[in-house]
Design a binder for these strands. Structure first.
Length: 423
RNA sequence: GGAGAGGUGGCAGAGUGGUCGAAUGCGGCGGUCUUGAAAACCGUUGACCUUCACGGGUCCGGGGGUUCGAAUCCCUCCCUCUCCGCCA
């Protein structure tokens, strides 16, 4: 969330820039500012009263010690009124604080000035592309290829769990493992430290990265223990840094993680989500960085370059979209999506989303750092990106690499697969 | 699941009703000494809110209560550790 100070100091700018996200902030910002002003006024009165009481208490202690019991008791009788006042002021204070908090979490992150105007996907800006779309005759979609070579069994997954939980088999399973290892090796080589995080997180973690409270319905919830299945490794990995104060010299911190991801995807199913296009459970390698505000956008570019190198090495046709205001997430300041082209479906499939959250998550997480030589801490910037999400990569590989002899394995995956052809 | 112990500053670890935001040690920072370093010695060293500033306020796992006054007493929740049981 945004900091109160930032909102107080930049009210007009916040309202103006949030228009890009089609969020009318005027009223809520006004309410926040008013509530905050009230809170501060109350706070200063409480502080003053508390100070009186503290002073009085101390003197009572001293009077008792020196045996002046009468004077002590007299002083003691004066405290009752003060205590009542403080009690009611404190109640008022928590009311203001609750209200502020409630309003604050409803305000999305302010988009970066370069974010394009637009309502939805159709307004995203293609900023770069590469690779070649293969010319294929009678190309089969990946779900048919998966059945033909017995790589993925969707019906079996439905039997065991339900729709959206495929069972990978044989070369299909091995391809998953190959991709995970390839992605992790690449990330590690690029300086990201590998972590293997828990797949369930508590409420605090869900709040820290912004899934809670507003995306509650998108996560699987284990009611008995009040835990959530992670929708992305971003959640546990970024929460490593919750309530942490880093040194400037330790920045940027770079982590990568493989995890299964679980998404309820409530109400988002249709004919275009056949096969691997949308799942409840899928595998993904995520990269996360904690950076200084001074260079977080350079870090974002560096992450983009990393993801680009992955799709290039996999020899897939790719493009990068800069998301418009209307298509961006609540918490992001700037997001780039990577898409790969799937030759049989003849569509672009999103395989990565790389974002700079600036200090929006950091403020929720209380993730700060201290500049060298300075005493004061400040909020760090957090960034993350998929590198990469597997299912659609698998879909594109299967569809684009199909030959009459079988599926040709991308060169970089041959060492991991132990074959150059799936047949 | 049963029994017990415990959660205090970056870490270790005192503190069981009053000048305790908290002893002491380690670590960190600054200095003296030294050609340099180490050692030794001296000093300093938490976070947050508020204020132009002085100052004030809050924080000893979370929440609530008792009291003029709580790290210290009471209630409650969470977590950690040890032993036993069960178990990949």
């Amino acid at each position: 969330m945004l900091t109160l100070k930032y909102i107080q100091d930049n009210q007009e700018e916040v309202i103006e820039r949030l228009k890009t996200k089609h969020f009318d902030a005027k009223e809520i910002i006004t309410q926040i500012v008013e509530a905050d002003n009230e809170r501060r006024a109350t706070q200063s009165v409480v502080d003053q009263k508390q100070n009186e009481l503290n002073t009085l208490s101390k003197s009572i202690g001293q009077l008792f010690k020196s045996g002046r019991t009468d004077e002590a008791n007299e002083a003691r009788s004066k405290t009752a009124g003060l205590k009542d006042e403080i009690r009611s002021l404190n109640a008022k204070l928590s009311e203001s604080e609750e209200k502020i908090q409630e309003l604050l979490v409803q305000v999305p992150n302010v988009p970066h000035p370069t974010v394009p105007e637009g309502k939805g996907e159709e307004d995203n800006e293609v900023v770069n592309s590469g690779g070649e779309v293969p010319a294929l005759e009678n190309a089969l979609p990946h779900w048919e290829l998966a059945a033909k070579y017995d790589l993925i069994d969707f019906e079996l997954g439905t039997k065991i769990t339900g729709a959206g939980f495929p069972v990978y088999k044989g070369w299909g399973a091995k391809l998953q493992r190959a991709l995970i290892n390839f992605f992790l090796d690449e990330a590690t080589a690029a300086g990201y430290k590998e972590v293997l995080p828990p797949l369930l997180v508590n409420e605090d973690s869900g709040f820290g990265t912004g899934q809670l409270p507003d995306k509650e319905g998108q996560m699987y919830h284990v009611g008995a223990d009040n835990l959530y299945l992670i929708p992305t490794a971003e959640v546990p990995v970024t929460n490593i840094f919750r309530d942490v104060v880093l040194d400037e010299k330790d920045l940027p911190v770079k982590h990568c993680a493989y995890s299964a991801c679980f998404r309820r995807e409530a109400g988002s199913w249709g004919s275009h989500v056949r096969g691997l296009n949308r799942l409840h459970q899928f595998d993904k390698v995520e990269i996360v960085q904690v950076a200084s505000p001074d260079n977080s956008y350079e870090v974002l570019d560096q992450m983009l370059a990393h993801v680009q190198s992955l799709v290039e090495k996999l020899e897939l046709p790719w493009r990068i979209l800069k998301l418009c205001g209307g298509d961006m997430s609540f918490t992001s300041a700037l997001t780039y999506d990577f898409e790969v082209y799937s030759a049989a479906q003849k569509r672009w499939l999103e395989v990565s989303s790389v974002s700079n959250f600036e200090s929006y998550q950091a403020n929720r997480l209380k993730l700060r750092f201290r500049k060298t030589g300075e005493k004061k801490t400040q909020l760090a910037h957090t960034l993350n990106g998929s590198a990469l999400a597997l299912p659609r990569i698998v879909a594109a590989i299967l569809e684009n690499n199909q030959t009459p002899q079988g599926i040709s394995v991308p060169k970089v995956l041959i060492p991991f697969m132990g074959t150059d052809l799936i047949k």
